[in-house]
Design a protein around this nucleic acid. Sequence first.
DNA 1: ATATTATATAACCATTTGGTTATATAATAG
DNA 2: CTATTATATAACCAAATGGTTATATAATAT
Lengths: 110, 110
Amino acid sequence: MTRTTYNIYRALADSTRRKILQLLSSGEQTQSDIVKEFNISQPAINKQLRILKEEGFIHERKSGRYRYYQLDRETFEGAYHQMVDEIGAMLDQTLMDLKHYVENKEEDDD
Amino acid sequence: MTRTTYNIYRALADSTRRKILQLLSSGEQTQSDIVKEFNISQPAINKQLRILKEEGFIHERKSGRYRYYQLDRETFEGAYHQMVDEIGAMLDQTLMDLKHYVENKEEDDD
DNA sequence: ATATTATATAACCATTTGGTTATATAATAG
DNA sequence: CTATTATATAACCAAATGGTTATATAATAT
């Protein structure tokens, strides 16, 4: 069944995928358009497109022998905001630091 | 020499590393404190800590037999903002879509 | 009809990843 | 001194990753 639950972190982890997303950010492109921007093979691009598609970050449209790809901005933006919130929360806790220090003060004295 | 240039995308790609960062977001923790929060072995945690440390997202402090870890907020926040900007820019281009359409209109007619 | 182009897929491969167990070393506790 | 605890490291492993080449299929162009 091949577990294909990629999340945005996984999707963004690879630079080829990030570059694909970047390309698509300025508009729809065919697969061959995308391939031309890289020095890797068509099947390699195809694989990364499949991953982005399975994750829902891009949408595929068939027309003749072409496959047009575009960002699925809704999904992508949703995941993006979730990520920004999640990581942002980690950074937004300078006060929590003090809280933790106060709460665990006595433990350090044993 | 093992090339260890992890970027924030790589660092965040793994859920164990994300959880470690989350733990550290509320304050300094020893390695064993961290290990207790997981169901994986101490060497496994050690490896992920090493990665986060090499990337500069956490800082290590030795005290007795303990190793204390804490977020390096400067580095982490810097990388975070860069990421937010980079990905945000991808999403912030609805107008670019139209631009691209206009510019490539004629190409579609051949 | 034939050649060309766009895409898909299979088989393969090396490297990386994220764990494991076993064991060593270092510091502290009793 | 000895036992315990915290951490480090080595050797190992299975699975995932990100490519490759070869080839098939589908659509279009000549």
